[in-house]
Nucleic acid binder design. Sequence first.
DNA 1: AACTAATCCAACCGCCACCCG
DNA 2: CCGGGTGGCGGTTGGATTAGT
Length: 251
Amino acid sequence: MVRTPSYDQNGKKKGTWTPEEDRKLVAYVTKYGCWNWRQLPKYAGLARCGKSCRLRWMNYLRPNIKRGNYTKEEDDIILKLHAQLGNRWSTIAAQLPGRSDNEIKNHWHTSLKKRANYYASNSSDGESKSINQASGTRRKSVENQNAISPNNCMRSYEIVLESSQWSPKQSSSEEHQAFQEEAILMENSGSFWTEPFLVDTSFSSRTDYVVPSIDWELVCPPSPFIGHEFLSSFDLEDYNCQKLETEHPKK
DNA sequence: AACTAATCCAACCGCCACCCG
DNA sequence: CCGGGTGGCGGTTGGATTAGT
């Protein structure tokens, strides 16, 4: 399931993310937040485009992300919302905490679409018609943007960071340079990376995968600028509990 | 065991909306 | 209002894995 690593004409790396790159991205975002995705790779020491970094973070590296093992309830919610909204994956994902739009989209195409087609062919014309009418639309509504979603959580984070002492915008470039040097130092000493980062619990079964633990003092510094909704959105207790969970088998 | 087809999903691409000067 | 920069979204693809012959 990996794309062959390659480089585009700008020297930006494409293809599968390496554990090394994941470490760098996690380390940077947990320390400084995602203040600017396009500038971030430069300061984080990544030869990736900002889009790629954002995607990687949103779909796999951010806290509380869930992988695989869809429950019947989740499937039902997806089927129901898809019938109402069509291919508005981000809106659907907003109703399923821990699920990314990309993963829901994949899950839909690989398994739920068949179920939906089966239901449609065995239900009234009206119902199947509503599914067809809803699909393919892509419009942002006000309520959609105000919905509590992981995306909005991150947006909140950005807003918070912009106005806080933790904002990289207020940090000097020397500080970013220091970050990179610190990362290299920690990497060489091994101390920073020794504890597995288990947000994606699939890491736990991979011997080639060692990602850093999260220092929540850095992720959620005790700042008056950081709103309660943002802090609670990460559900730290749940996050820590994931360390005890065993890997759920893929496929 | 070897080969082929089907499945799955991580990642890319292009477009659009929003923001700001 | 306009244009550039950026983030976000949904469609699509590359290729590894799994199932079937």
